[in-house]
């Protein structure tokens, strides 16, 4: 069952990537390096993507799962859900990167609900770990959104230092 879900999720991810590549570039992608554009070239894509998702999942299991839960559903009133969350799927990837790097202690409503737990900052994660885990989160469960690149993480990290 778990494997089935995983493979379904993977297929979903693949499909989402195709859609994403057709979309016009969001403002954030202007900062991407040539490396970030690799997913446009055939067979390499799935390998890369599979590797990214696997690495991203590993980062998720260690750093995120306890609060955001195995289904990305979070915990009502405490920990924000990632699955289905508007901000997670949105084009403002810098915002997500900033939350991972700086944590979150603001009490803001997320899709009309409030969540009261603090999120720890994760500056110890590398640019690659953050880009992997955000790509994983943006393309897991019911989420489908463009990948986050290392360059995007690097740019945000430079700004907040």
């Amino acid at each position: 069952m778990k494997q089935l879900i995983a493979s379904m999720a993977f297929i979903t991810v693949l499909m989402s990537f195709q859609t994403v590549s057709k979309k016009p570039a969001s403002p954030v992608t202007k900062t991407t390096t040539p490396a970030a554009k690799k997913p446009a070239t055939g067979g390499v894509v799935s390998n890369n993507l599979k590797a990214i998702m696997e690495r991203g999942q590993n980062v998720y299991l260690i750093n995120c799962l306890a609060c955001h839960q195995v289904d990305g559903g979070g915990v009502p009133h405490l920990n924000a859900p990632l699955d289905g969350a508007t901000a997670v799927k949105a084009n403002d990837k810098a915002k997500l990167i900033r939350i991972v790097l700086k944590g979150m202690t603001d009490r803001v409503e997320i899709d009309g609900e409030s969540y009261s737990n603090n999120m720890a900052p994760h500056p110890e994660l590398t640019d690659q770990q953050i880009s992997d885990v955000l790509t994983y989160v943006r393309n897991s469960w019911t989420n489908k959104a463009s990948a986050v690149t290392q360059a995007e993480v690097k740019a945000v990290r430079a700004k907040i230092k």
């Binding site: 839960q69 195995v70 289904d71 990305g72 559903g73 979070g74 915990v75 009502p76 859900p81």
Partner: peptide
């Protein structure tokens, strides 16, 4: 119950 969100009632 694996993920908290899945619980119908609490």
């Amino acid at each position: 119950v694996t993920g908290t969100r899945g619980a119908a009632h609490r």
